[in-house]
Design a protein around this nucleic acid. Structure first.
Length: 624
DNA sequence: ATTAGGG
DNA sequence: CCCTAAT
């Protein structure tokens, strides 16, 4: 059976950030902010996606590669670590420099956001191997071109319109087709052609990054996990339209003042960054693999009345099952899936590593949105899920070459509505499946597929990527369409979709999204109070560094604002307070610190904490 | 890049 | 949380 044809369409707006701080672009604060916000959301989304995927992957992937435990530390238990962090900090509070240094050294659980974004257009990537390992497309691939000269040059032509074309093109046709009776190969590939050259999209050509499509899983993982930390980030000067995004982490790194203070920590920091990145990557990979495996697994054992074909559960490409079969059964070997197009924008200066990561991000988002499989018979989409295979024309007697599969954005999550202004295709989405975040703010801006936010994995994800599913697909499950099991796939739609993505971002970019609300936990409040007690109320940056350095989603402005509200909260009656109640003890400290620092207008900051012992009542002032 | 404040 | 103005 040949499979392929899934088309996910999405656009990625990527802004590249550089870890190379000297080159980090600076932009208007407002812009940065927006971007930042954006990123956060994105991260959240990713996070969720990742979690989801990770769960799917389950233990299957565990052995794949050992992952650094430390990198996970932060994840999932922000608070715990947070507390840890704080403790550590306390040991040397009053000495910002020192504490910072020590932090670096300890680098306990310092999540680093991977920054991905580069503005460029990547049209295709391939997912090879059966294990679901994502193979990144090397830039060197002749079929792919990335242009970075213009921020807006992404043109997409509807090369994907013809399903048939794909099949032929991917050269995998032959391999994709297999005999019904002989085996079940579960190799899955996501070959996809894409060429973007300048503003033109060349005819698609199949790019098989993974020639054999059967790379060892381990090997892949390893690769994924390790590529170029340092090179991961590339810098690209963004046009005004594309505000550069940089993660908080990045920001810290480039902070000149900060670095002047503790230059020696740079190395550590970088290393840490690399680690984090690594972690993230792994995560992504696993997630992806997990998903793939899951998919495959299901497919294998799928059918209602069908027997499980696989015994080994192994997903390696080319695995063959020799289980006895019924004459009526249909065996399929899926060598590749076609996924929706992914539009990625990356500057020429981007590194291959960043490109890879960007693609990974795109894929992750795609997957996080839910995926479903579409079946094509003779190029026509089979909409009626109730039909039997034989009724549909799929049987051992049939030439399975007529059978195709597509991966489509699933109903679980939906693609984001495109900019209203755009005339083109708007993806009808199913509100019900939208994540909270997305539902709340469908408008995405610059679509920056950034690394997942390791923190707050619980937050809803939202992605900047745009999934542009085939419109025709959207109603696939519609029961009412039973009458016509086979529905021609409207090429035009596809075409239209192909075009859409590229222009949207600009407008969208302008539309900043509000960051997701992230109420401070008691733990955080405690940390904040502690820091303010020591540093005063006018040194938010220091507070941030001291107590929230790992909480990249908390900016110093956030801390300042929180403090503001805390003071207010402490001033009102308990009945008037809302949200998660803050222990009175903390509120008392807030008022105490507030009063203290109001009088000691920062005169003692050098010293840090107020001398007034009562201020930290019950708390050792060891470092004061 | 930070800080301070209003919205 | 966001936005602006002023540093």
């Amino acid at each position: 059976m040949h499979i392929r044809e899934m088309v996910f369409k999405r656009k990625l707006d990527c802004v590249s950030v550089a870890f190379d701080y000297p080159n980090v672009p600076r932009g208007p604060r407002s812009c940065r902010r927006k971007i930042l916000n954006k990123r956060t959301d994105e991260d959240d989304t990713k996070m969720c996606a990742m979690d989801l995927l990770a769960s799917l992957a389950g233990k299957i992937l565990e052995e794949g590669q050992s992952s650094s435990a430390s990198s996970n530390a932060f994840e999932g238990n922000n608070h715990e670590n947070f507390g840890k962090e704080i403790k550590t900090e306390r040991e040397d509070h009053h000495n910002p420099l020192k504490s910072e240094s020590s932090d670096q050294g300890n680098s306990v659980s310092r999540p680093t956001y991977e920054n991905t974004s580069d503005k460029c257009v990547v049209n295709s990537f391939s997912f090879p191997d059966s294990d679901g390992i994502l193979e990144r497309t090397p830039m060197s691939d002749p079929h792919k071109k990335i242009h970075g000269e213009t921020g807006d040059a992404h043109v997409n032509t509807g090369y994907e319109q013809g399903e048939a074309t794909h099949g032929v093109r991917d050269g995998g046709l032959t391999t994709n087709t297999c005999n019904l009776e002989d085996e079940t190969a579960l190799g899955v590939q996501f070959p996809k052609p894409v060429c973007v050259d300048g503003d033109d999209l060349k005819s698609p050509s199949f790019v098989n990054m993974t020639p054999n499509g059967s790379l060892a899983r381990h090997g892949n993982h390893t690769n994924l996990g390790r590529d170029d930390d340092e090179k991961l980030y590339s810098y690209h000067k963004c046009s005004n339209k594309f505000k550069s995004y940089r993660s908080p982490t990045i920001r810290r790194v480039r902070k000149s003042k900060y670095w002047k203070q503790v230059p020696k920590d740079f190395g550590h920091y970088r290393a840490d960054v690399g680690r984090k990145v690594l972690h993230r990557k792994r995560k992504s990979c696993y997630g992806y693999n997990g998903w793939l495996r899951e998919t495959i697994y299901k497919r294998r054992r799928s059918p209602d009345r069908s027997s499980v074909v696989t015994s080994d559960g192994g997903l390696s490409n080319g695995s063959v099952s020799k289980l006895p079969q019924n004459r009526d059964s249909v065996k399929l070997s899926i060598k590749s899936f076609r996924i929706p197009e992914l539009f990625i924008e990356v500057p020429e200066t981007a590194t291959v590593g960043s490109l890879k990561r960007t693609v990974m991000e795109a894929v992750s988002v795609l997957l996080s949105g839910g995926i479903r499989v579409g079946v094509l018979v003779h190029g026509k989409k089979v909409r009626d899920d109730k039909r039997t295979l034989s009724q549909t024309g799929i049987s051992c007697e049939e030439n399975l070459s007529n059978l195709g599969f597509t991966l489509e954005p699933g109903p679980s999550k939906v693609p984001i509505p495109l900019c209203s202004e755009d005339p083109v295709v708007v993806t009808p989405t199913e509100p019900t499946s939208l994540c909270e975040r997305s539902a709340a703010s469908p408008t995405l801006d610059s679509g920056i597929p950034i690394a997942d936010d390791v923190i707050n994995s619980g937050n809803v994800m939202d992605n900047n990527l745009e999934l542009v599913p085939y419109q025709s697909e959207i109603s696939v499950d519609d029961p009412s369409s039973e009458s016509r099991a086979l529905v021609p796939l409207p090429a035009l739609e596809v075409k239209a979709l192909a075009i859409v993505p590229l222009n949207q971002k600009h407008k969208r970019t302008e539309l900043a999204q509000r960051r997701t609300r992230r109420p401070f936990s008691v733990t955080e409040v405690e940390a904040l109070v502690q820091a303010v007690e020591e540093l005063g109320t006018g040194r938010w940056r220091d507070v941030k560094l001291r107590a929230f350095e790992n909480a990249d989603h908390r900016t110093y402005v956030d801390l300042k604002d929180k403090w503001k509200t805390l003071v207010h909260t402490a001033s009102i009656t308990p009945q008037q307070r809302r949200g998660e109640p803050v222990p009175q003890e903390l509120l008392d400290r807030v008022l105490r610190a507030y009063g203290y620092w109001s009088q000691h207008q920062g005169k003692h900051h050098a010293r840090g904490a107020p001398k007034d012992p009562d201020m930290n009542r019950g708390r050792a002032l060891e470092s004061v």
